[in-house]
Design a protein around this nucleic acid. Structure first.
Lengths: 207, 207
DNA sequence: GTCTATAATTCGATAGAC
DNA sequence: GTCTATCGAATTATAGAC
């Protein structure tokens, strides 16, 4: 509107990039699309981030870091209380941070949820970036699961945990749609979704 | 090598498109990438298919049609035998065709599996094309499930079936990797994967 | 049916003024 | 830090010769 410089061009670019990549994917989103909607200049992206790939890395890390930290903290608490926690407790600690954090920020609708769901199955370079961010969390979780279920092989637990993540990702991607498990960003809906997802997955893991 | 015209340019384009889209996604694959590896001409793609999007539709339908037909046939058999089949029988009928068909053709490695897994979560226009191809199969399967589990709400069965598909897609995407559920294209490995997947998912559906 | 040549756009990235 | 202007390469698609 007026000539006052935008208070935070960098953050605005991050927000718009997150939204557009959620809708169109990484390869389907151009830097020009982003700066157009962010009302910024083309050169600003390369000034603040260096390249399109580095911009994506910034968008992804901004979301992933607090989630992983929260997951590791909850898992540490669990291990401190009980040497081999229940499958339900482990699953809850793993699923709660992503399901809560993706809605707590001010992005409209379910953009953040769809962004994370989208990134999980994108080709390179997205795949490598997303994988590395969650590698530690996944391994830690796998270790605790192994302690609780020592009769199952490491490989069996590996692909079962992989399917847990696939289910989580699908819940995120479909969030807000008519018949989805997660209907809104209301706290009680999220808590209910976590509970249903844990109940859905726990028997499968244990078998 | 020699000047003899390729016996089947159209089919070669389809094969290469399938492989490259499996690796790089739809937006990340260019028509030039395809014709280069297929040793065909750029104009040949537009002559045979009309556009990049129509080429994709042709690649996808070639895979999806026999799978859906097989799913519907198996489900029809089940319904003829038993008014309300077991959850295990329904799941087996649903999962067997995609897991068997994706490896029976001569594409190297697990290209076809990765292609289907990739397409399930791609942005438009891939999303709409993939969804429509499997819509009938999904609804038919949902109806039979509802008859076997009348005490569960339609919405509950909807998102549970959605998570079944998510698990199937993940198994396809990860097929062939070190700790994956589906290790090779050998018939016995596929049968074992189907059995494990059914056992993993059936308790969750029934609960 | 296959080819060359090219139209018409769009891409990521950068130089340099302010 | 923000802007204009532009580079060099890549994109889908088409026209027209053979």
């Amino acid at each position: 509107m007026d000539t006052v410089a935008s208070p935070n061009t960098k953050e605005q670019i991050l927000n718009v990039a997150e939204q557009l990549i959620a809708e169109r994917g990484y390869a389907g989103t151009t830097v020009r699309n982003i700066i157009s909607q962010a009302e910024a200049n083309l050169a600003a992206v390369h000034y603040h981030f260096g390249s399109k790939e580095e911009l994506f890395r910034a968008v992804f890390s901004r979301i992933a870091h607090p989630i992983v930290e929260s997951q590791l903290a909850l898992l540490a608490d669990l291990k401190a209380q009980d040497h081999s926690p229940s499958v339900e407790a482990i699953l809850t600690a793993f699923l709660t941070p992503p399901l809560e954090f993706i809605i707590q920020h001010e992005q409209p609708k379910m953009v953040r949820a769809q962004f994370m769901g989208r990134c999980w199955t994108e080709p390179e370079p997205v795949q490598s970036i997303a994988y590395k961010e969650f590698e530690v969390s996944k391994n830690t979780f796998l270790d605790v699961l192994q302690r609780t279920l020592p009769e199952q092989s490491r490989q069996e637990l590996f692909w079962k945990l992989d399917l847990v993540v696939a289910a989580l990702i699908r819940v995120l991607t479909e969030a807000g749609k008519p018949n989805a498990l997660l209907k809104s960003t209301r706290t009680e809906d999220i808590q209910k979704a976590i509970k249903q997802l844990v109940e859905f997955l726990a028997p499968s893991i244990r078998t």
